[in-house]
């Protein structure tokens, strides 16, 4: 028998090891640092931004970066740094809300499909149907029809990204369902809900979290693209996409209108993708085998699902 103290130290060692693993995983670490910085910028935007992002100053139109205006000014003389900070806030907010909502709804849809075979057929046909659309196109059409505003952008993005999460949850749940420990629990007479909530969902968390991270990144890209096409966040609200849209018209002489908001999008998405890749390596030690299996499946001609990326 181990003494209690020994068990505790073992636990501590294990915990230290997993923290060490996070630190040794450079991708994850870099990604997390970028995300945290962006999150801080988004939350503290009102304190960081030196000017009101809506304040128009016709005398200072399209001024290059200077000490007063770090990123220069836009075509209305508004301070670009403040607008980019607020734009990051909106993009981050939209990405996060879409990731959470699509994650929760996708989890529910995936679980229902895995456990009720009658509903499975109906739900999966709908999911396949939505999945068949190129995501940006469907989102664009929904916003176009409903009119551009924040809520409609959110609705469109959530609808578009539920399927990718529901599919991952469903296939993971089907695997867990067949495992011996679930059989054992059922044999012991554990209730269906107990098996589902306490034993199944925790086992689905790592694929779910990984997929949610990718949805977060893709949602930010799609929102930027929608706003850039004029079917996203409407002016005068700043969003990284619509600043770029304004910047395109003046690209010949005002490079700062493109370079700064563009770099913020790249940083955001790079951070999320790095974190997603890193998390996958960290949470799923089977990944090395799975990758091999995937290439083997492709070699034998079986279709392998796409994940996350557009």
């Amino acid at each position: 028998m181990k003494s209690e103290a020994e068990v505790k130290t073992n636990y501590r060692v294990k915990k230290q090891k997993s923290i060490a693993r996070i630190f040794s995983n450079h991708m994850l670490l870099t990604g997390l640092v970028i995300i945290v910085i962006m999150a801080i910028i988004s939350v503290l935007a009102p304190f960081i931004a030196p000017y009101d992002p809506y304040a128009i100053d016709p005398l200072n139109r399209l001024k290059p970066p200077s000490v007063e205006h770090f990123f220069g000014t836009d075509d209305f003389g508004r301070d670009l740094f403040s607008r980019v900070i607020y734009g990051t806030r909106i993009s981050f907010f939209i990405g996060a809300v879409v990731a959470i909502l699509a994650g929760v709804i996708g989890l529910i849809v995936g679980l229902i499909s895995a456990y009720y075979s009658i509903l499975d057929h109906i739900l999966m046909r709908i999911v396949d149907g939505i999945y068949a659309f190129p995501s940006i196109l469907l989102a664009l059409a929904i916003v176009a029809v409903r009119g551009p505003d924040v809520v409609n952008v959110l609705i469109a993005l959530v609808i578009v990204y539920i399927p990718s999460i529901a599919r991952v949850v469903r296939s993971a749940a089907l695997v867990v369902k067949e495992q011996t420990f679930v059989e054992a629990l059922n044999a012991q007479g554990a209730s269906k809900w107990r098996v589902l909530v306490i034993h199944t969902i925790p086992n689905l968390l790592s694929p779910l979290i990984i997929q949610v991270t990718f949805v977060f990144a893709v949602a930010i890209i799609t929102e930027a693209a929608l706003s850039f096409l004029g079917a996203g966040i409407p002016a005068p609200s700043p969003s990284l996409g619509n600043i770029l849209f304004d910047g395109k018209n003046v690209i010949y002489h005002s490079w700062w209108m493109t370079v700064f908001p563009g770099s913020f999008i790249i940083l955001l998405v790079l951070g999320l993708n790095l974190a997603g890749d890193g998390l996958r390596d960290l949470l799923d030690p089977k990944i090395v085998n799975a990758k091999r299996k995937k290439s083997r499946l492709i070699k034998t001609g079986k279709k392998v699902g796409r994940h996350g990326q557009q």
């Binding site: 395109k248 493109t258 999008i265």
Partner: peptide, 22 residues
Amino acid sequence: SLLGISVPSFLVGLFLILLFAV
């Protein structure tokens, strides 16, 4: 390749215009 996957195409387009056209 990671950069290529992360950066949305319209943004690449804008940067290309800045560099090679302007």
